[in-house]
């Protein structure tokens, strides 16, 4: 990658999962504590963005703030790279954050987007899994980030209606063996199946005993429009970093 500082001797790791880290650089958002450790094994796409109101031409904002924003971003990139990540930085002036984030997920084929929150350490991770669809992307991310890092992984599944406890356990065991195949130490994987309830509450309260959460993205709907994306709600309550695994994006 062209913009990668300080990765001269990093092996070309094809399995490094790419993670998008969006930061509103000019609004004082900085790289939260613990993020470099969390993403040490990732290919990080560090997105500095600045949302400008429609009254303002994007060019105008870039002219005035571009340099400041870029130097902050470079500073964050250096911290990530020192921890071991491959980093690529992008700085975008935009009228709409979602458009920009979505475009960059496509362009860099990102496996996950980080909701940046701080954490003191990265020792255990809660992985909330909904179902078999796209679960491979979760395991790729978890194995890629944490297999070599000695991080404890808890696989969690809330039962759907009509789904028995055995179904849930079988599902999580399948995921577990997939993770083991990908190099995660079997002793460090726990599984937890729970009766259905409000998944957001369940995830958020379970997350309290972990350092980070991995969960899937949800299709936009009226509910998500009113209450916000579940991943955002979890992040708000948990206050730690949340990795939101993205759906497979269709090819052109």
């Amino acid at each position: 990658m062209p913009d990668t500082p300080a990765d001269d001797d990093a092996q070309p790791a094809p399995d490094r999962p790419s993670v998008l880290v969006p930061l509103a650089v000019l609004e004082g958002e900085s790289l939260p504590a613990g993020t470099p450790e969390l993403l040490a094994n990732a290919r990080v796409v560090l997105l500095g963005y600045h949302v400008i109101p429609e009254q303002t031409a994007a060019e105008q904002a870039r002219e005035q703030f571009g340099e400041t924003a870029m130097s902050k971003l470079d500073e964050f990139a250096a911290r990530l790279a020192t921890a071991g990540a491959d980093v690529e930085t992008r700085l975008v002036f935009t009228h709409d954050r979602e458009t920009t984030v979505d475009r960059l997920i496509y362009e860099h084929d990102c496996l996950a987007v980080l909701v940046p929150n701080s954490t003191e350490q990265v020792e255990s991770v809660l992985v909330a899994l909904r179902g078999t669809v796209g679960v491979g992307r979760n395991t790729r991310l978890v194995a890629g980030l944490f297999a070599d890092a000695g991080v404890a992984v808890t696989l969690y599944h809330a039962l759907d209606e009509g789904e028995s406890r055995d179904d849930g356990e079988a599902f999580l065991n399948g995921v577990r063996s997939d993770l083991v195949e990908r190099g995660v130490d079997p002793d460090r994987i726990e599984t937890a199946v729970e009766e259905g309830g409000v998944p957001i509450d369940a995830i958020a309260s379970r997350a309290e005993s972990h350092d980070a959460v991995v969960m899937g993205e949800t299709d936009p709907s009226v509910t998500t429009f009113v209450f916000g994306m579940p991943s955002e709600q979890v992040a708000e309550r948990f206050l730690g970093p949340v990795l939101v695994v993205q759906r497979e994006r269709p090819e052109a």
Partner: peptide, 12 residues
């Protein structure tokens, strides 16, 4: 294109 000071998102 990014000229070292960031790129511009087209949104309209």
């Amino acid at each position: 294109a990014d000229t070292g000071e960031g790129e511009l998102e087209r949104t309209i």
